[in-house]
């Protein structure tokens, strides 16, 4: 098997993540956190280092009087972020359309 073939062969989930190296990915984390950033490193635990990261945190509050749900999102950007893998729910490669 040629090395190019070997590089592009996708047999298991982590192969797909390898192909996303140096690409912007979407990461969904536990507790309503989302990240978008360029993937620079990862390991088998899905520990990662992302660059130019945007984090979106969604919180839901209940209005004291009307009991309505108020959904708030807070955004911030971080130049480089190490993300511990135990919080990762899913990783999505870059969208072709976006």
């Amino acid at each position: 098997m040629g090395s190019t073939e070997e590089e592009s062969a996708v047999k298991e989930p982590l192969d797909l993540i390898r192909l996303s190296l140096d690409e912007r990915i979407y990461v969904k984390l536990r507790h309503d956190r989302e990240l978008r950033g360029k993937l620079h490193a990862y390991d088998q635990h899905l520990n990662m280092i992302l660059g130019d990261v945007e984090e979106i945190v969604t919180t839901v509050e209940i209005d004291d009087e009307t009991y309505e749900e108020i959904v708030r999102t807070t955004r911030r950007t971080v130049p480089f972020l190490f993300v511990r893998g135990d919080g990762v729910i899913l990783v999505s490669p870059p969208l072709r359309t976006a």
């Binding site: 390898r18 130049p79 135990d86």
Partner: peptide, 30 residues
């Protein structure tokens, strides 16, 4: 370690080419 969510890294402490190489090397080994 188990209670860490993120570590914000200093930009001068991130060599992206080095990280890519190390990641690919380890992905092959695993």
């Amino acid at each position: 370690g188990s209670v860490v969510r993120y570590v914000q890294l200093p930009p001068e402490g991130v060599d992206v080419d080095l990280l890519h190489d190390a990641t690919r090397r380890e992905a092959r080994g695993g």
